[in-house]
Design a protein around this nucleic acid. Structure first.
Length: 437
DNA sequence: TCTGGGGTCCTAGGACCC
DNA sequence: TCTGGGGTCCTAGGACCC
């Protein structure tokens, strides 16, 4: 048997532990000012009753539920409590994989003799997380991880839903297509065009038809519709970044579950990116360049902390009309930050040829690989000292905050009151933004 | 009233090589 | 000189998830 544990309205629950006055009132995490751009990362059940849900624009949430309390949230606290949950589960269950910050897959196969009945064990885990950590949660129990996940989603909140062994496909059959992980809005439309309404209909469809219509994805979905496989696929946690400021915190984020993984080979992330959406759509080249500098700085710093390098640099842009476009370039193994920045500027230049205002700018690295310290042997003294500077910078920023150290163009970004930057006079710097990312 | 930020995986076309 | 077919890499974009 497999269990899937899902923390109910996780971010809101943590905020309520921090401030019990939030109990019983509608709460939206995602930004403290709902008149600004932003999205709801987590809405309390009280807010959901008004139609508010995760992913919704803050402004829309405010219209639907004006009396809601809007908060930026505390990502560091969420990460810590998520690790506490993982630790508790690992102490009492044979094999646990974090699926995200608020979801955990638990393998209970073959542990009956050691740990007893899976139902009893799963129920005790649910109870322990509630009583010892204070977090309400829902568990789904089934013969495959996939069905356990579906069951937990449908058992929310504060639920415990066990699907009888062998009854996986029967449980899924009457459910709507969208209940199956992997079916989003687009795929749902295409499946409906094939005349399908339920997961059961999808399960019965000739695999050949499915394959012709949807390619490899069709095959996968067909298998899932029939219940999936009774194995926990090795997959590393995805760490959703809630997005609120506090630059230096990123440096501390050396992976969500840094400690974990002695027995599980830790998988390298495939990509790393930093993005930001402007308060207002931008076409000022100076502002865009300053944002680019800042994003490259933070992304490179994050790579350095995780001892990774990227093979490809990507710049992506979302234009005012919401179209998203990216440009990529291969970067050399020994490229340094200033060279990466120069490449990024070139790519951004190409994207600016379309004369549209820019809503969002992003810098990403793809094809990540471990940065081998030996590479430094081949560096010249200049490269070495620049690298040392980078490491020193990371340390200073970790201790004193991102704003404690800034360079040239990055200063345009956020003239704050505290930082002195590199000592240059800043009075001439235009004040272009009211707050940093 | 226009939807954040961080990821994953898949597809498809073109370049290039053999 | 013309040219097939296959493999791989790179780039760009789409769909999905939390």
């Amino acid at each position: 048997m497999f269990a899937h544990l899902d923390l109910d309205q996780f971010f809101v629950s943590v905020e309520r532990l921090r401030d019990p006055r939030l109990c019983g009132v509608p709460v939206c995490i995602g930004g403290s000012d709902p008149t600004k751009r932003g999205a709801v990362a987590c809405a309390s059940y009280e807010a959901r009753r008004f139609g508010v849900h995760a992913g919704m624009a803050l402004r829309r949430a405010r219209v639907l539920c004006p009396e809601a309390v809007f908060l930026s949230g505390h990502l560091d606290d969420y990460l810590e409590r998520s690790r506490n949950v993982l630790r508790l589960l690992e102490e009492r269950a044979p094999r646990v994989l974090p699926r995200s910050i608020d979801e955990f897959a638990i393998d209970l196969t073959g542990c009956e003799r050691l740990l007893g009945d899976p139902h009893t064990l799963a129920a005790s885990l649910r109870e322990a997380i509630l009583s010892e950590i204070g977090l309400s949660n829902t568990i789904g129990l089934a013969g495959t991880p996939l069905v356990a996940k579906v069951a937990s989603a449908r058992g929310k909140p504060e639920g415990f839903l066990a699907i009888p062994l062998g009854g996986e496909a029967a449980y899924l059959a009457p459910l709507p297509l969208r209940a199956l992980p992997g079916i989003g809005p687009k795929t749902e439309i295409r499946l409906r065009e094939l005349g399908l309404q339920t997961i059961g209909a999808l399960a019965r469809l000739d695999p050949e038809i499915l394959r012709t219509a949807l390619g490899a994805m069709g095959e996968t979905l067909g298998q899932r519709a029939r219940g999936g496989t009774p194995r926990l696929a090795q997959k590393q946690a995805i760490v959703p970044f809630v997005g609120q400021d506090d630059g230096a915190k990123e440096l501390l984020r050396d992976g969500l579950f840094g400690r974990q993984g002695e027995h599980e080979a830790k998988r390298l992330p495939k990509s790393l990116s930093r993005e930001r959406t402007f308060a207002e759509d931008q076409d000022d080249a100076l502002v865009l360049d300053a944002a680019l500098v800042r994003l490259v700085e933070t992304a490179v710093a994050a790579l350095r902390v995780q001892k990774l390098r990227g093979r490809t640099l990507a710049i992506h842009v979302r234009y005012a009309d919401l179209r998203t476009v990216s440009r990529h370039v291969r970067i050399s193994r020994d490229a340094e930050e200033h060279q990466v920045l120069a490449q990024g500027r070139r790519l951004l230049g190409r994207l600016l040829e379309r004369r549209l205002r820019i809503r969002r700018l992003g810098v990403g690295f793809l094809g990540l690989y471990p940065a081998l310290e030996q590479l430094e042997l081949f560096d010249g003294p200049q490269a070495r000292s620049r690298r040392a500077l980078g490491h020193a910078l990371d340390r200073v920023r970790t201790r004193f905050g991102w704003e404690s150290m800034r360079f040239g163009a990055g200063l345009v970004y956020q003239p704050g009151s505290r930082e002195l930057g590199s000592g240059e006079p800043r009075s001439r710097e235009p004040r272009l933004r009211e707050r940093g990312p």
